[in-house]
Simulated assay, not measured.
Amino acid sequence: MHGAGNDFIVLNGIDQDLSVITKEQWRQLAHRQFGIGADQILLIEKATRSDADFRYRIFNSDGGEVEQCGNGSRCFVRYVLDKKLSSKNPLRVEVAHTVLTLQALPDGQVQVDMGAPIFEHERIPFRAENVASKIEFHETLYALPIGSNPGGHDDWIGVLSMGNPHAIQVVIDVDSAPVAHEGPRIESHPAFPKRVNAGFMQVLNRNAIKLRVYERGAGETLACGTGACAAVVSGIRRGLLDSPVRVQTRGGELSIAWPGVRDGIAQSVIMTGPATTVFEGEFTLP
Rank of each mutant, 00 (worst) to 15 (best):
R27D: 09
C69L: 07
S61W: 14
R123A: 09
C229Y: 04
R27G: 05
E65Y: 06
V10I: 15
E187V: 11
F119Y: 15
R262D: 00
P90H: 10
A38P: 07
L204I: 14
W156T: 07
I36A: 12
R74Q: 09
S19E: 00
V261P: 03
R127P: 03
T272W: 03
G239M: 13
L204S: 00
V174N: 02
V66M: 09
S87E: 13
G199E: 14
A275K: 02
D263F: 09
Q33F: 12
F192R: 05
T277A: 06
L204G: 00
V95K: 01
G219I: 12
N197L: 13
H2D: 02
E139L: 09
V245D: 02
G264S: 08
K46N: 15
F59S: 05
N71D: 02
G37K: 14
F126M: 08
R246Y: 00
A177L: 11
H189T: 02
G63V: 15
M271R: 01
D17A: 00
S19Y: 11
E65G: 09
H153R: 08
I172Y: 04
I124M: 03
V261N: 02
P190A: 14
I124E: 01
N71R: 10
H181T: 14
A230Q: 04
A52V: 12
A257K: 15
G225K: 02
R27S: 13
H31Y: 14
V269S: 06
V93T: 15
E65N: 13
M201T: 13
I172V: 11
I157N: 07
I186Y: 01
T226C: 12
D39N: 12
R206I: 10
G235E: 09
G108M: 08
A104P: 04
V99W: 07
M1Y: 08
D263H: 13
P90F: 11
C69N: 01
L42T: 03
H153K: 08
F126H: 05
N130D: 09
G147I: 03
R246C: 00
T98K: 15
G273T: 01
S243N: 09
G108W: 08
D17V: 04
E136I: 11
S188Q: 13
E122S: 13
P117S: 03
R92K: 15
D17E: 10
A180D: 15
I146N: 01
E120F: 08
I270H: 04
D39C: 04
W258L: 13
E120G: 10
F137A: 06
V179D: 07
S87Y: 07
N89A: 08
G5W: 06
A223P: 05
R32T: 15
V80D: 03
V99S: 07
F119E: 08
N207C: 08
S188L: 11
S87N: 15
W26M: 12
